[in-house]
Design a protein around this nucleic acid. Sequence first.
DNA 1: TACGATACGGAACACAGATTCCGCTTGCCT
DNA 2: AGGCAAGCGGAATCTGTGTTCCGTATCGTA
Lengths: 197, 197
Amino acid sequence: MSEVIDRPLRADARRNRERVLSAAREVFAEQGRDAQMDDVARRADVGVGTVYRHFPTKDALLTALSDEMFAVVAAHVRTLLAREDAWEAFVQAMWFSGEKTAGDRAFSEIMAASSDLPPRTCPGQEDLIVTVGDLMARAKAEGRMRPDVTIDDIPLLMCGVGSASGMVHPSRQAWRRHLAIILDGLRAEAACAPLPD
Amino acid sequence: MSEVIDRPLRADARRNRERVLSAAREVFAEQGRDAQMDDVARRADVGVGTVYRHFPTKDALLTALSDEMFAVVAAHVRTLLAREDAWEAFVQAMWFSGEKTAGDRAFSEIMAASSDLPPRTCPGQEDLIVTVGDLMARAKAEGRMRPDVTIDDIPLLMCGVGSASGMVHPSRQAWRRHLAIILDGLRAEAACAPLPD
DNA sequence: TACGATACGGAACACAGATTCCGCTTGCCT
DNA sequence: AGGCAAGCGGAATCTGTGTTCCGTATCGTA
């Protein structure tokens, strides 16, 4: 057992940690997961060494950012649970996720990552699954959502919206059209045949 | 002007070129565009040098494969033009593209590539655009397809299906559910509000 | 069969980008 | 103010891959 007593960070260290995180958010959102650690350091106005002091590896940094993203989305969606109209709440949840996903290249890439290691789950992600699952159950009960969709289909759909969002397209924000089509396809009336499988 | 008289390849060279192409098809389809040239060479049972003799660069190889893919899809879709029912033909075209895209990781990655260079176009791709565009126009005229979709939306949607197809999902071939939802969302009756933009 | 041109294999090289290392600086505590 | 552990910067290192090079093998022709 190594002693994991995390003594409070020194003031400058705490500050730098924040700088690194926020620089990383920007850099990875813009350039995707292939952005370089040096860029992050430069944007944070800090040496690479400092980045590595706070995040032992590039992957750790990306993981931190991704977990954070999930947490943000999960928190927002949780506030939608109170809505009377579950279908409407679900739709809002999707738009919010889309907004976040389409605006963050690294995040969509990470979601799409198929090859990578056993798919790790973070609290935010689990929370999201539960919350959205709840909305879906209610929306189906309302008769507004097609009954054959599953919570498992949602990450897939959002991942699609995210990865496509970087493509060239006459209209910026083409992802909105993409998501609108999907949402229309999820309505109860849209189901003209049961989903395969 | 350099003399581009391409004398016929020597017999063994022609054979090797095929081997390389077919190995590359497999390797890149399985592992995505990050697969290594060495792997391609090994699978083709050939030295790396040989791979490079036929394709001056990894990118050239990927481009060749991608062009080929577009050509295959375009050719198939072209045969659908004869169908009476344009909406049905369009649906078939989408399923065929999905089949091809979902089965080829590198291809979906290339389609999703946003950062990469000015988006190059190959004959197959242009043909595809024309052909699918025609089907769409007719399907709209039939009153079966929502009028606010554009040909420009299609690559986006397919790209989404492709990138999501690698995700973990209880059902293999989850991409079929994904595409089914999108197709339902493209029907004329599904449009409950015009697409954004 | 012999010869020259083509093609081949794969070790060696080059480069990019992640990660480490260590002498120097700075915050915190007495 | 002084001491020192915690942090910092960024040059140097290490590693994984694309690409080149050249001696050798093979093909096609006379």
